[in-house]
Design a protein around this nucleic acid. Structure first.
Ligand SMILES: [Mn+2]
Ligand SMILES: [Mn+2]
Ligand SMILES: [Zn+2]
Ligand SMILES: [Zn+2]
Lengths: 139, 139
DNA sequence: ATGATAAAGAGAAGGCGTCTCATTTGAATG
DNA sequence: CATTCAAATGAGACGCCTTCTCTTTATCAT
């Protein structure tokens, strides 16, 4: 399935901004990009896309399950492609380094906790903040 | 230890705004209040405190370990007294209901994950989002 | 190709939080 | 208790990320 088909499968028209943003996210898997980051990349590639469009498209992608939105410590959102395989994050509060992990035990426990509270889970966020090995040395 | 002593122990002068905000938080344990909420409560009590002061004090309280700051789904921060006993949250995305929980297994797993990645944990955030039992019925 | 409709671009507007600066307050001192 | 001065406050301006509004443009079914 190509990008155009992926968008249509999500109920979205295959427009130039959407295709380009999807392309950018695919080319940078593992990274966590802000809307502004993506906007700048578009401009660098001679693409006249409005910042508002970037925000709109990312929100639509999120609703369609194509991307995940995260709010690490500082408040402004970052995005990454959601390839079906969920993961959580370790974030260094000094240098911003991000490590990804997946712990089946934690995932299972969460389901159980929600179950006991009568909640039907839609999603969750687990961010572990701290200092990475490099930053522990640098004080 | 009374409130005045608690503030001084945290290296903060015992000022009227600080004492009142601490009092409000204590009177509403279990709730999660925004800066605006606290500001309104102060005004209702004939206390002329600026909103900027509320933000400043809450940030100082957070740094001193007196309160915990959370960012549930919508982005704006809420605060609660930090009584030493950490807990995490289940949040209903429809009605805003919040349930608190503490899972020793999850806590332990987090320490282990951080350890293996060489991170020194400072804190973490775990929010489970979904629909509470009431909201599942109402569609 | 044409038309109906969704989407985009530009910039204004919104909302939460922070900063600035003149004024007041706390608490240490005499 | 009066004095003193750094620390804290109040008011409002400001900043930043994000969303909204409105007109123009592009997509896609026919
Ligand atoms: Mn990630
Ligand atoms: Mn809580
Ligand atoms: Zn680091
Ligand atoms: Zn609910």
């Amino acid at each position: 399935m190509n990008d155009e088909q992926r968008l249509k499968a999500a109920g979205l028209k295959a427009t130039v901004p959407r295709l380009k943003i999807l392309e950018i996210l695919q080319a940078r898997e593992g990274q966590h990009l802000s809307a502004e980051d993506i906007y700048k990349i578009l401009l660098e590639n001679q693409l006249d896309v409005g910042l508002a469009t970037v925000y709109r498209v990312l929100t639509q992608f999120e609703a369609a399950g194509l991307v995940a939105r995260h709010r690490f410590e500082d408040g402004h959102a970052v995005f990454e492609l959601d390839q079906g395989e969920h993961h959580d994050h370790l974030v260094c509060t000094r240098c911003g380094r991000v490590e990804e992990f997946l712990d089946p035990v934690i995932e299972e426990r969460q389901r159980r906790i929600a179950d006991e509270a009568g909640f039907r889970i839609t999603h969750h966020q687990l961010y572990i903040f701290g200092l990475c090995s490099d930053c522990q040395d640098k004080g």
